[in-house]
């Protein structure tokens, strides 16, 4: 009997250890694809990546897709999902959760603990620019991979004590093909202009359209000179309303709020 209990305990321990590595503390996997946007193989690969980064960085990187937010705002849903499913490493419950909802076409990134430090408002803006094209284009796998890799990069950068922020954004990856094509394109346009000038040197024959050389000097007399005001039109246009939400905080840093469970979250979101 004791042996059996021991065996069960041992099995549970092994399972727990395994679960701890593959799953977040609460038992939910780091990829929850309820909207079924990913193929099985893509889902598997993405989950492997999320697990690998999460364990290495000791910060949960989570991707959640849902069909509907069930009446909540994207921020509330993402925060609650994070809090209720026990994501997060350590006391700070460090983690970053990426939620997209298909019905509302909302996306939201909720950060907690060290995730708040690593992903600043400016960093989030940059991140969203990087995955937005994939997201809008329906390439969800690429969007999530981009998100995961950027999170990895952000956390590594934050460890140095200087997280990516308004005055310290990640460098664009060097796209060699784009650079070569652009450089050659600009070079070609400049060359066209230069060779055009060289071609022009060969031409010296053209018609004269004016007779300016033959105006008798001082012969011009202005005898009629009237400027008559006729009418005026006034057009009135309403000023564009200033949009506060678009305003970027110049100070940098991360803005935070408190979720329904009382936990502190950062992040942000939008439509795709």
């Amino acid at each position: 009997m004791k042996k059996r209990a021991f065996a069960i305990c041992f099995a549970l321990l092994v399972w727990a250890l395994f679960a701890y590595s593959a799953y977040a503390a609460g038992g939910m996997p780091r990829l929850v694809d309820w909207a079924e946007l990913l193929s099985d193989s893509d889902a598997e690969e993405l989950l492997d990546k999320l697990n690998e980064i999460s364990e290495r960085q000791q910060t949960d990187i989570v991707v959640v897709t849902v069909n509907s937010l069930e009446g909540k705002s994207a921020m509330e849903y993402a925060d609650d999902f994070y809090d209720n499913n026990g994501y997060g490493y350590g006391d700070g419950r460090d983690g970053i959760l990426f939620l997209i909802s298909m019905e509302e076409r909302d996306w939201h990134i909720s950060t907690a603990g060290y995730g708040i430090t690593a992903v600043t408002d400016a960093g989030l803006e940059y991140m969203s620019e990087a995955f937005m094209d994939y997201l809008s284009g329906g390439d969800y796998y690429a969007a999530f991979i981009t998100f995961a890799e950027l999170c990895d990069d952000y956390i590594t950068q934050a460890m140095t004590g200087e997280p990516y922020d308004a005055d310290n954004l990640p460098e664009e990856p060097f796209d060699i093909i784009w650079t070569i094509i652009t450089a050659l394109g600009i070079g070609f346009i400049i060359s066209l202009i230069v060779t055009g000038i060289m071609k022009g040197e060969l031409k010296s024959v053209g018609r004269q359209i004016r007779a300016d050389d033959y105006i008798k000097k001082g012969s011009m007399r202005l005898s009629e000179n009237s400027d008559l005001f006729l009418y005026r039109h006034v057009e009135r246009r309403e000023k564009p309303k200033e949009n506060n939400s678009d305003r970027q905080s110049p100070q940098g840093g991360s803005s935070t709020h408190t979720s329904s469970s009382g936990a502190t979250h950062g992040g942000g979101g939008g439509k795709f």
Binding site: K216, M220, L222, S223, L228, L230, Y231, H233, E235
Partner: peptide, 13 residues
Amino acid sequence: ETSFFSVSRGGTI
């Protein structure tokens, strides 16, 4: 506001 003018010029050259 756009103001419209009729401008005439005449003379010899």
